[in-house]
Design a protein around this nucleic acid. Structure first.
Lengths: 329, 329
DNA sequence: ACCGCTCACGTTAGCGCTAACGTGCCGCTC
DNA sequence: GAGCGGCACGTTAGCGCTAACGTGAGCGGT
């Protein structure tokens, strides 16, 4: 920067201003500085900027897995909104392992991000303590809680599944099962199960709770096939099978003909997420659609406002959900 | 850090050593420092560490899109290998737009990452200049080039598609078409097309080159259906259709029955990537499988060695590919 | 007893920026 | 024409670490 300021005949402070707050220098000075930057090949060092200004212009994002379209779409939306404002994003994945989130927060804090983006509202006590002590804005996404850590842009997984059960009951289904992978690292799946459980208890009080949980299997299509098989073996009487993710539901849908199961005639199937694939399988998958782009963009908007110490109107935004009815249910 | 050193009764330098190179202090001192860290709630500031040591312990990764399992699996593999070594990863996506890569490199350099992970070997002149001037290790992935920028862990997209054509020809196919989305931001797709073109010219010299390119459409399943339709309209005589990605191939496979097309009887279909879905559709999709985990892990290994200024044996690693033969072709 | 070496830790300076405040000039008001 | 405020830019100091070098204790060899 000293080279640039010498070349441009101004002080280092003016170079700094010309680069980060161009409005504060005259157009002529700005042009001289820009010319000097080009001539010297200067690339400013944001680590030094961070240290001096106490702003890193980074955001830390923590998701269960980046190798799933649901979260990577969210990250893309957040990143696309933040990048033009000069923020870069760190990404960490918990791999659906309990405790990894706390570890990641611990590591990320060392980089002093200006904000955090988290998936879910359920965190360990220590995670919350760390985030609160850190004192920078946090946006939670992909779920709903009446007492969020800070900002919240999400929807109720519980109500979404309850709505799906309502849809099935309205279509005349009485014997429903839920099949998924439930474990502490994936609270969203647990909320969805709870929504199923409560809606069944509410709408079909005479029916037993039918659940198949294979907590040791990965979130992959093979597991969906296995869940379909296990559920029909355990509850052959069911007419509808509710999955907490399209990953399982589409796999089950694709495997059904081979197992001699007519969908939706013999068995109705529902998913969650409205993946690209959901509208391409036959029959089309009835599923829960989330406006992921809006969720990501809104989360980034709230974070930006907080990071700039602007007033934030609503600190909790419900982006809702939509039951996307296709032929599978 | 001053608080910690006062609390532990040692100098700040010793606190620094206890945290970053624990072997250099006695076990007793280390314990006292750790105790003091806990008591004070100290979280070290890696921006300051970066500034003082000229090592950021970050790696910048640039991919076409993070919302695709191919690249997010790679990122996950790279990230999982680097995280335990204390490296965090910045991710940027070019959205398959030409020129975005150069822009991203320009931004990332300001953060002084210790290394770069790139997808592809083809970059603008300015991108290469920036990376070379920056002088830190760069790993290119997902393609092959005899004169890489620095390190290379990939495979030949061109040869992979040529192998697929060989497979089809060996099965008796003569009239083949290639259908995809070819544009400057996606060099991998172009290499795959070239592999198809050259293999057809080589093995089927009497056949014309049959290509359908819809460069303005997104890489999504809808486009796959559209490509299938357009290709059969233009080249009704074909018996095999080669796609440069499983996204298109699986969509075409799922749409075929509805269009009255029997796969593989009337038309053989092949993809690229061996997505989870490829083995779940019926018929199973014949496709090109890449060992993405190995590619990511090896890329991270080479990068780590270079970042630590260790000797790197092979600077170019070919992870190869495998034609995964299923029933679609 | 002296030397030289190693080890554990301390001291000094500086990494490359920007916050905060200082300075000088210009134009406006009364 | 004195006074005042705003603007553009400069000066000073310091953000929180670590590289490089310094120091002193302990130990073995001669």
């Amino acid at each position: 920067m000293a080279d640039v300021s010498a070349e441009a005949g101004v002080s280092a402070q003016t170079v700094s201003r010309a680069l980060s707050q161009p409005d504060l220098v005259t157009p002529e000075t700005r042009a001289r500085v820009e010319q000097a930057v080009r001539k010297t090949g200067y690339v400013r060092n944001l680590a030094a900027s961070h240290l001096a200004s106490n702003r890193s212009h980074t955001v830390a994002a923590i998701v269960p897995t980046i190798a799933s379209s649901v979260f990577s779409d969210t990250l893309r939306a957040v990143g696309d909104r933040l990048a033009p404002e000069g923020y870069q994003m760190f990404v960490g994945n918990t791999d659906y392992r309990e405790g990894r989130e706390e570890e990641l927060v611990g590591h990320f804090i060392q980089r002093r991000p200006d904000g955090f983006v988290m998936v879910g509202t359920s965190h360990t006590r220590e995670t919350r303590r760390l985030l609160e002590a850190y004192g920078r804005p946090v946006v939670e996404t992909w779920d709903w809680d009446d007492a969020p850590t800070d900002l919240l842009v999400g929807f109720s997984n519980r109500r979404a599944l309850a709505s799906m059960v309502e849809h099935l009951v309205a279509r005349g289904h009485r014997r429903l099962a839920f099949a998924g992978v439930l474990r502490p690292g994936d609270e969203r799946a647990i909320r969805r199960f709870e929504g199923f459980r409560d809606a069944v208890a509410d709408l079909l009080p005479d029916e037993p709770l039918r659940v198949v949980d294979l907590p040791d299997l990965p979130v992959a299509m093979d597991t969906g096939v296995e869940l379909l098989r296990a559920t029909l073996q355990r509850y052959p009487e069911i007419t509808a099978l509710v999955f907490p993710t399209d990953v399982f539901a589409t796999a089950a849908l694709l495997a059904a003909p081979g197992l001699g199961i007519d969908v939706p005639g013999r068995l109705a199937i529902t998913g969650f997420g409205d993946f690209d694939l959901a509208s391409h399988v036959h029959p089309g998958l009835t599923t829960v659609a989330i406006d992921v782009d809006r969720m990501g963009t809104t989360a980034a908007d709230l974070l930006l406002a907080r990071m700039r110490e602007q007033q934030v109107g609503e600190t909790a935004v419900d982006v809702g959900y939509r039951i996307e009815v296709r032929d599978s249910a």
